[in-house]
Design a binder for these strands. Structure first.
Lengths: 228, 228
DNA sequence: GGTTTGCAAACTGTTGACAGTTGACACCTC
DNA sequence: GAGGTGTCAACTGTCAACAGTTTGCAAACC
C-alpha cells in the first residue's frame, strides 16, 4: 500500500480526547496521593487547573466513579472514598477471586517461554532482595500482573488492574509497608513451581495461600491503627 | 429530632439526576434487546427521545462504557459490542472466578436462616420444574444472586451483577436457551448441600463444576452457529 | 444564650451553541 | 469504467452560560 518510506503516517499521533487525558490526569492525582481519602473535588477549580471545561472533567469523574476511585453524592460533590477495614477486606477477597482464577488458567496456558521469563524475573528480584536487605519488595505487583497476563483473559486482566488500583489507595492511608519481602518472595517461588508443574489445583492453593497471608498482614495493621 | 408524626419527610423522593435516569434507561434499552450488538447510538437522536440534552446522555454512555455494555470509538460514535466466542468464554471465566469465591465465602458465612431460605427457594423451583416440564429455567440467575448475597461482599456482588449483564447480552444473539433446566437444578442442589455442610472446598468444587458445565454448553452453541 | 429563620455565596446539574472530524457522495481525470 | 479528488452533511467533542440545590452565616426571635 504505502509506497514511500516516510517514517510513519501515524494515525496514532492524534492526541486523544480531553476526556481521556483528563481521566488519566485525575486518576494519577488520586493514586499519587495528591488527593487523599475524604477530600472533596471542586469541579470548576480542577477543570481550570487541568485546562479543560467541566464537561470532559465530569465525564472523567463518571468513569472514575465506576472504577471506585471516587464517590459522587448528588448536589453535594465528588469525594475520594475512605477505605475502612471492611472495604479493604472485601477488596482482598475480590482480589483472591480474580488472581486465584488467573493462576489456575496460567498453569494451563503458560508457554515454556512464559515460564522461563517468569523464572528469570524472580531470579532477578531474588538477587536484589538478598544483596541489599531491603525490607520492601517493590516488584510484588509486577509478579502478579505477569501471571494475569499469562492467563490471557482480558476481562480478568482489566478487573485485576482495577482492584490493584483500589488497594493502592486503601493501603496508602496508614503508611502501609509490606515488611515481609522475603516471605512474599518465597511464596512467589512456590507459585512459580506450581505453574511449572502445570497443576491448576496447586497453583490455586499457592496463590490463595499467598494472598491470604497478605490479607492477614493488612488486617493486623488495621487492628493496630484503629480497633474498628 | 423529628417531633411530629407526619408520614415521612422523605429525603428519598428526590427524583435522581437526569444522568442516573438516562443511565438506567439506556441500560434497559440494551438489555431488553432494543439495541442489538453492532448497532450504533446516535447521541442527538437518543437524547431527544429520552427528553434530555446530550450532556447527561454522554455521562451515562461513559458509565456504560466502563460496564462494558457499550464501546466508544473517538469521533466515530458509540456502538453495542458484539461478543464472539472468545469474549464469551472470557466472561464465563471471570464469572467462575467471582462466583466460586462467593460460594466459598457463603459456605463459611451463611446463617441457618440463609440456608433455610435457600432450601425453600430451591424446593419451590423444583416443584415448578417437575410439574410443568419447562425446558427453561428462569430462576437460574436468582439462585446465583442469592449465593453472592449470602457471601456478604459488596465488591463481589457488584462485579457479579456486571458479569451477568454482559453475559445476558453475549448470549442474546443466538437465541440462547438453557435447555438444561433439570441438570442445572441438580447441580444447584449439590451446591446447596456443600453450603449446608459448611465446606468451602466442596462449595468451590460444586460451583466450579456447575459453571463449567454451563460454559461447555455455551461453547457448543458457538461451535454450531459459527465455527470461529 | 441558644434556637430558628432567612438570605447569599458557592457549587453542581443541565442546556444550547460552536468547532473539529469523519464518511459518503458527486465529480473530474485518465 | 476505475481510481483519485473535492465538497458537504452528519455527528462527535468541547465550551460557556443558565438554572436549581446546598450550605454556611448572620440576623431575628424566644
Amino acid at each position: 500500500m504505502a509506497s514511500t518510506d516516510i517514517p510513519v503516517p501515524r494515525p496514532l499521533d492524534r492526541p486523544d480526547s480531553f476526556t481521556q487525558r483528563t481521566l488519566r490526569a485525575v486518576r494519577d492525582l488520586i493514586l499519587s496521593g495528591h488527593f487523599r481519602p475524604g477530600d472533596r473535588v471542586n469541579e470548576a477549580e480542577l477543570a481550570e487547573a487541568l485546562g479543560v471545561s467541566r464537561g470532559p472533567l465530569r465525564e472523567a469523574l463518571q468513569q472514575l466513579t465506576s472504577e471506585g476511585l471516587v464517590h459522587r453524592i448528588p448536589h453535594r460533590g465528588t469525594f475520594i472514598p475512605e477505605f475502612g477495614a471492611t472495604e479493604t477486606v472485601e477488596l482482598y477477597e475480590l482480589r483472591e477471586a480474580i488472581e486465584v482464577m488467573a493462576a489456575r488458567l496460567a498453569a494451563e496456558r503458560a508457554t515454556p517461554e512464559d515460564l522461563a521469563e517468569l523464572r528469570r524475573f524472580l531470579d532477578a528480584t531474588g538477587e536484589v532482595l538478598h544483596s541489599s536487605d531491603e525490607a520492601h519488595y517493590p516488584r510484588d505487583l509486577d509478579f502478579h500482573d505477569r501471571i494475569v497476563a499469562i492467563a490471557g483473559n482480558r476481562q480478568l486482566q482489566a478487573r485485576c488492574r482495577e482492584v490493584h488500583q483500589l488497594l493502592h489507595v486503601a493501603r496508602s492511608r496508614s503508611g502501609f509497608r509490606t515488611e515481609r519481602a522475603h516471605q512474599a518472595y518465597d511464596e512467589h517461588r512456590a507459585i512459580l513451581q506450581a505453574l511449572e508443574t502445570r497443576d491448576p489445583d496447586a497453583a490455586d492453593r499457592a496463590m490463595r495461600a499467598h494472598l491470604r497471608t497478605g490479607l492477614a498482614h493488612v488486617r493486623q495493621l488495621f487492628e493496630l491503627s484503629e480497633p474498628d
